[in-house]
């Protein structure tokens, strides 16, 4: 593997944003294939971080810093792919936030970092986000996925309100709404007719990949559930 890819891999793991950006630029100048750089330098680094997190060897701040470094490097590499007329690495835009009334953002930050590192452009609205803000941002950013999280049971109805509002605005089919957070279950996802649920942050990548590739022309589809709890 190229020395630059190895260096990018190290920079992402260390969460060195400036280094990651410079190495990504240098890899383009050196004529390396951007997709190869993404897979070897960014994806592999974030896979390692994800495994280490699951094993209790890496922690949320490292994961967030790695995600930030990966996002910066990814932006220049994706721009190069587009400039060359290519596709395939840009997985789509996700608008993410914690529902109104709730200020718990640890899980949301984890998902943001992991999605960023997997080629998704993630627009993070932060905490205590109203239904209107989710929708307006998704429209403005041409997002495919709206990811809304809450740790508080009493904020759950806002997830339902988000879907009902999309329905009322007759734009429901434009967005895949996925749910996360402690009290969210597959049952709740089905009940409010959301589009997806995953039990862990790492499974959310697979969920989003499946959702962006599915064709909704024929109308609503069943939600995709990954990692259901034992009943």
């Amino acid at each position: 593997m190229s020395d630059l890819i190895n260096k990018l891999y190290e920079a992402v793991i260390e969460g060195e944003e400036d280094d990651a950006l410079e190495i990504a630029k240098a890899s383009i100048e050196a004529g390396l294939e951007p997709l190869k750089v993404i897979r070897g330098g960014i994806q592999a680094a974030m896979d390692l971080m994800g495994d280490q997190f699951e094993n209790g060897e890496a922690f949320l701040p490292e994961l967030m810093l790695a995600g930030d470094a990966a996002t910066l490097a990814m932006e220049v590499l994706l721009a190069k792919i587009k400039e060359d007329g290519g596709e395939g690495a840009d997985s789509g835009t996700v608008v993410i936030g914690v529902m109104a009334g709730d200020h718990h953002d640890i899980g949301k930050n984890l998902v943001r970092a992991i999605l960023s590192a997997n080629g998704f452009k993630v627009i993070d609205l932060g905490i205590d986000v109203g239904v209107r803000d989710f929708i307006e941002t998704a429209k403005r950013e041409n997002a495919k996925i709206i990811a809304c999280s809450t740790l508080i049971t009493t904020s759950l109805p806002y997830q339902k309100e988000l879907i009902e509002t999309l329905d009322a605005m007759k734009i429901r089919e434009k967005y895949q709404v996925i749910l996360g957070g402690g009290p969210v279950t597959p049952q709740w996802t089905n009940m409010i007719k959301a589009d997806g649920y995953s039990n862990t942050a790492s499974e959310c990548v697979e969920l989003c990949k499946q959702l962006v590739s599915r064709d909704l022309e024929g109308g609503a589809a069943d939600p995709i559930i990954i990692g259901a709890l034992n009943a």
Binding site: A100, G101, D102, I152, T154, S155, P157, Y158, K160, E161
Partner: peptide
């Protein structure tokens, strides 16, 4: 349904 930050809460 009671919503946070809403009179219903």
């Amino acid at each position: 349904e009671a919503l946070p930050n809403d009179p219903s809460e």
